[in-house]
Design a protein around this nucleic acid. Sequence first.
DNA 1: CAATTTATGTCAACAAGGCTGACATAAATT
DNA 2: AATTTATGTCAGCCTTGTTGACATAAATTG
Lengths: 185, 185
Amino acid sequence: MMAKKPAELAKAIRTPLTVDDGIDFAMIELFFFAYRDFTSDPDQLLATYGFGRAHHRVVHFVNRIPGLTVAELLDVLKITKQSLARVLKQLIDTGYIIQIQGLRDRRQRELYPTAKGRDLALALAAPQSRRIANALTRLDAQDRGTIEAFLKSMVDPDLRTQIEQLPGGAGNVQDKAIAEPEATR
Amino acid sequence: MMAKKPAELAKAIRTPLTVDDGIDFAMIELFFFAYRDFTSDPDQLLATYGFGRAHHRVVHFVNRIPGLTVAELLDVLKITKQSLARVLKQLIDTGYIIQIQGLRDRRQRELYPTAKGRDLALALAAPQSRRIANALTRLDAQDRGTIEAFLKSMVDPDLRTQIEQLPGGAGNVQDKAIAEPEATR
DNA sequence: CAATTTATGTCAACAAGGCTGACATAAATT
DNA sequence: AATTTATGTCAGCCTTGTTGACATAAATTG
């Protein structure tokens, strides 16, 4: 490969990219920073357990869908079984999750949280829920529906079914935006 | 350390965690899935260049704030200089970014995109902007303000100043939510 | 029943992108 | 002249993703 001499040929562009370039930078950056801080609270907590984000996701979904199989979990997380194996093994060995052989199909391993695993899931979710609640305080119930609708349509259409199956979750949001006020249920 | 026998002692919890546990799981999961898909488009594109998310962030902010120094970039990204060095070197060597010695302070290296770097930043931002625009189509101009206000208050207060300094961006959102319709400017 | 497929587990190697610690250089500051 | 600052670089480590290969037990199929 021929080495180029980019520094001598390429010229520096000194003007910033802005909204004028037809890109919604405000939203892109807000989403980036918001998500970064959204994950920062659980990240800190996880570090004290010696766990990482991967453990968080596993603990979360096992608590949300107790009894799901390894294959189902892989499908939700979209990672390989080898990736899952490492963190899942740790969580099982340290007593946060237990496996129970499936009844209908004894090849399957159903995943359940222990009391310890339930506590961890709650502890991880609490600061995130608090952050969201805080961000919603200035908004009314209808705004909440707007935000849910927005976030939901940011998700790839073919993956939305996953969300809809989660218990008591966002699947209940009307596709048409502006659902009935959730707060009054 | 004594090894416990968790499988024999710990009992499986069979009930799912739900909203009833006082946690806003709907929002937590929507945010998770939305962000995951939000990053999937650029991720795919980056792979064709042999780049990763780290490169994306660098290219993005150098294009948004041309001439920022290495130290400033580190502050925005919140990573170590050793982490940055790897990806930055690659981007410089392949001609996406160039460094120019600072004028006032010649120790500093000001970072600028090349034309190639500008094109890449635009190509990466385009699908994200499209996804956002699509998610906003069903919503009105006032809803946009609601979402911006929500995302902004998800960010740690002390880090919000960073956002406010970005050109033509979300810093312009009124803190009180419901800004004047952006679309009519 | 035998053969095949399926669900899961496991070993090994690799890559990206974080991290820490240590040290080097040049330029600014004191 | 001495110190601090901005940057670069080397080396090694960790987490979490990847691929490929192979093993086992249970279900399914011909």
